[in-house]
Simulated assay, not measured.
Amino acid sequence: MNEVYPSPAVRREVIKLTVEEIFKYTKRPGRKNLEVVAHNIVNKYPKSFEDNIDGVRIGNGIESLTNQLVYKVENETRKERKWLKEFKLAKVNPEDETCKKWLQNEFITSSCMQNRSKVKEYMDRTFNERQDDISKKTLVSILHSKWPFMFEEEFIYSDYEKIVNLSDCKTKLIEVLNERSIRIFKILKHLNQSKPIHIQRIVFKSIKDECELLENQLPKKMRFLEVLADYFSENIDHVYKTFPVHKSLEEIVEIIPNTPFMIIMGNSTATADKFVVCIERLTVAKFSNFWEAFSYMFVCFYVLNMQYPHHAAATYEFVQRFCAELNFSKTKLKTKASPKVLTLVKAMKRYDSVL
């Protein structure tokens, strides 16, 4: 096995069997222990579990294998909680149940927009039931099957607006991201001058080279999130990542995080025209525009009551406060503000009038 890179199906089976064996001893192994398990597996079969794209090694595979083990443990324990709760079923409004069944049938059988107004009405009426399912940590794959219209762009934003108590969020967020991206890039470049020169060069030289290659400023606009993550010493690979266009989605989803994630099919963020949003490794939406895809992915954290990934938390929180403008005096959200994000927001306002 050491010289053979397993197929996605075989890799999933290895993960499944490993977790089953772990569960014989504990249901709560913790990430540190799972990392030890992953380390032992990779040490024994380095060639089989290394991260590679088209035969090019991009990592030893320990982190991606650890993440898969963590996701599998979380999913299995979540399923267990779901089965336990079935013995204590909450009362369901008969009318809501009728709406839900109609929506499921409509999604399967309808091929036109003639019942769209009714879909909107029923989706609005069943909002609380969907939120109840989400509060029970229902798997996204089950939500997708139970509420097939839920992940359509229109209804994701509709649910998001109810949660944050704002309106016209899609248009406003995409416009702000487009309008402020270059400005944020310039300010971050100025602020990053306090960092060691070798750190500055890595991301900014890459963007400068791409601007010269394309003969436009688009990379500065499209890659400001990369600069933002670099400023916070975070990893943009926990938000999105580019992959060769010939790479299959089945292969890609095996090595991406479980949290909302954007797969970019192409050579770079600035030139790609295919963006895939996955949640718990399930493809939920596809876009041809980067900001539309990112905006959709961002609101999914709120609709699905998910935490930002640890390695990109400040990056997302900055977007939340400075771009989505979710401050807690205007919304129903209750979250402690990150000091380093607030410091950057204040710096943005201070430098904004200068640059």
Rank of each mutant, 00 (worst) to 15 (best):
E86Y: 07
N40F: 15
K172P: 00
L344K: 06
T331Y: 02
L17K: 15
F232K: 14
Q200P: 03
R11K: 13
V140R: 09
F328H: 12
V70M: 07
R11F: 12
N93F: 10
V164W: 03
L282Q: 12
A285N: 08
N33F: 07
C278T: 14
E97G: 07
W83G: 00
I263A: 02
P196H: 09
E251Q: 13
I187K: 02
K82Y: 07
D132K: 15
N178W: 03
F224S: 02
N267H: 05
V92H: 03
M348D: 01
F204L: 15
Y157V: 09
P94V: 08
I142E: 14
N60K: 04
D51R: 11
S338E: 09
F232T: 11
N93K: 12
T269R: 06
S295I: 01
K336R: 10
N52V: 05
E106K: 12
V36S: 09
F23D: 01
E152Y: 11
D273T: 10
E20C: 08
I134T: 05
E210A: 01
E234I: 05
T98H: 12
L69W: 04
K208W: 06
P244T: 05
K241D: 01
V92E: 09
Q307I: 02
F261V: 00
R130H: 02
E3K: 08
C278W: 04
F328S: 08
G61I: 03
V4Q: 07
V203R: 06
F298S: 03
H39I: 01
K220G: 00
V56C: 07
E212G: 02
T242H: 05
E325W: 01
K44A: 12
I256S: 06
M113N: 14
A90Q: 09
N165S: 14
D209Q: 08
K332I: 09
T269S: 10
E13W: 03
T126D: 07
P94I: 08
E251F: 04
N93L: 06
Q320C: 03
V284H: 04
I263L: 05
K274Y: 03
D133S: 10
Y157W: 13
L84Q: 11
I108Q: 07
I41H: 05
T242S: 13
M297T: 11
K221G: 13
L103N: 09
L173G: 00
S288R: 09
L69C: 02
E210R: 06
P244C: 05
R180E: 14
F298K: 00
K346I: 04
T109F: 03
K172H: 09
D168S: 13
V36L: 11
E161T: 04
V253T: 14
R130F: 11
W147N: 13
S181I: 02
T66P: 01
P309N: 08
T171R: 12
Y231S: 09
N67W: 13
R183H: 12
E250G: 05
